[in-house]
């Protein structure tokens, strides 16, 4: 007992170490308070962001399978992510290793000859074992529901979020493709709502919670993406939300950082704060404001958390 923490593998993904450090920092802070010591798999790389959808592109599975193999080699049997994209890619890559013999054979043949070099001794290792899909990939929302338990969370709450009206925004990658992801029912999910209720938010339902925010089209078709993002934020506002909660750094980019461009295209647009679910949880658990990284946001979310501009809780 005492203060001994449980070790747990965590795959952050590239965006969290650069553009959304607020998501990474709040994940570390809340997991520490929940009693976990996080281990990042050694030498992790980008997961590839997109699960390859055609046989032609299956080499894209090499990166996620290598990450999962590393977790296994380090003695882990599960790994969690907070980024919805990473979750989707790792989970599907893992599933492919179990259910698709051809992908299993081709990717393992490719990865067997990986070489690692010991930083100290310079010794080279090669001839890696096959990876058979035996690490379970979880999203933090799932891990909290199934392994931590909402009761434990409720017992640790330090701040009352009661007045905050929140819409849960799932987007695409937490729920779909149907039959491949399984964090919740793709047509009628409730895991995000349950999480928010248990940390003390007032949950507001809205019809755009599973709609796409524009995803990577914000680079290649920025106008189309702005319209998709506008539809989501407008619906949240019309349904009376103070803030939109999400888990994906790309949704955050489209729905928060691009609000200036949404406004350019739709002058009647009203700004709307967004927060990562880990920021809301961190705040509820009493984490200091600096850790939340609120100055990284385009639309300042301080007032919805009851903080005035100078950082004083009101």
């Amino acid at each position: 007992m005492g203060n001994k923490k449980t070790k747990l593998h965590y795959y952050p993904g590239c965006t969290l170490k650069e553009k959304t450090t607020n998501l990474d920092d709040t994940t570390y802070a809340v997991m520490d308070l929940l009693g976990y010591e996080l281990i990042e798999p050694e030498n992790w790389t980008c997961c590839g962001a997109e699960f390859p959808l055609t046989e032609e592109k299956i080499v894209g599975l090499a990166a996620p399978v290598r990450i999962l193999r590393q977790v296994k080699l380090e003695g882990g049997n599960k790994v969690f992510t907070v980024c919805s994209f990473c979750f989707n890619v790792l989970k599907r890559a893992n599933e492919a290793m179990v259910t698709d013999p051809l992908k299993h054979k081709r990717i393992n043949a490719f990865l067997k000859d990986d070489i690692t070099i010991d930083r100290v001794t310079g010794d080279k290792t090669t001839g890696f074992p096959e990876y058979n899909g035996d690490v379970s990939v979880l999203h933090l929302l799932e891990f909290i529901r199934d392994e931590v338990g909402y009761e434990k969370i409720r017992a640790l709450i330090k701040r009352d979020l009661g007045k905050v009206k929140v819409v849960p925004y799932y987007g695409c990658r937490l729920l779909r493709p149907k039959g491949k992801i399984g964090i919740d029912k793709p047509d009628d999910p409730s895991i995000f709502e349950e999480f928010l209720e248990n940390i003390g938010c007032e949950v507001i339902d809205f019809p755009f919670k599973q709609e796409c925010c524009g995803s990577y089209l914000s680079l290649s078709m920025p106008d189309a993406a702005s319209e998709a993002s506008y539809n989501v934020l407008r619906s949240a506002k019309l349904n009376g939300a103070d803030v939109l909660a999400l888990s994906c750094p790309l949704c955050y980019y489209n729905l928060d950082r691009r609000q200036d461009r949404i406004k350019e295209k739709f002058p009647e647009f009203h700004e709307m704060p967004v927060l990562f679910f880990t920021q809301l949880l961190a705040w509820a658990l009493g984490v200091d404001e600096e850790i939340l990284g609120l100055d990284q946001h385009f639309c300042d979310p301080r007032s919805v958390l009851g903080i005035d501009k100078s950082g004083v809780e009101i």
Partner: peptide, 20 residues
Amino acid sequence: EIPAELADELPQQALVAVYR
């Protein structure tokens, strides 16, 4: 195709995804 002024703000995952 990426405008220079956006290079600093773009999330890594969007760049990787759109090129993929």
